[in-house]
Design a protein around this nucleic acid. Structure first.
Lengths: 82, 82
DNA sequence: GTGTGACTTTAAGTCCGTA
DNA sequence: ATACGGACTTAAAGTCACA
């Protein structure tokens, strides 16, 4: 499958990082969010471009501030100084 | 058209706010972003759920930090303490 | 200069499976 | 517990004519 946009790739890395930090599985996170497990997998691997509501839901269920999550994502982008 | 999710509605308000702050029109912003003017209109009115890459592109062309933009969006959500 | 509805095309998001 | 793929359904992307 083709890779998504840089921001989505970075977002995926942040999600994986936070999920592991919480010690939960993709399946658990998926269920909490009401999303499919394979979709979480695709997001974490940077293969999909999630919508704002999806990003929001992920933040809520990872119990991390939405803005903090976005900031974490930016850490994974080389030229992240906008 | 049906209203989008709360985060998208809030995001739309932030976009409109920042765009006006920059003193540019929807048409100008649309051209910079390579998007359609009417699509910008729909986002600002909270009728669409933009993807991360779209939000990213808007931030770049509004010359605002992505995280800052998201923080501005949260200001428009009542219970924004996640 | 923007709002709006209807529209077509593309990608998000699901569900099945295999490894 | 996750990667990966194919086929599928739904929603977002993107456009247009008109008010």
């Amino acid at each position: 499958m083709a890779e998504a946009s840089p921001i989505s790739v970075a977002f995926g890395k942040a999600i994986r990082q936070e999920r592991r930090k919480k010690g939960i599985t993709q399946e658990e996170l998926a269920e909490k969010c009401g999303l499919d497990r394979t979709y979480i997998s695709q997001i974490e691997r940077g293969l999909k471009n999630p919508t704002l509501p999806v990003a929001w839901e992920l933040a809520i269920n990872l119990e991390i501030n939405f803005v903090t999550l976005m900031a974490a994502a930016l850490q994974h982008i080389p030229g992240a100084s906008h």
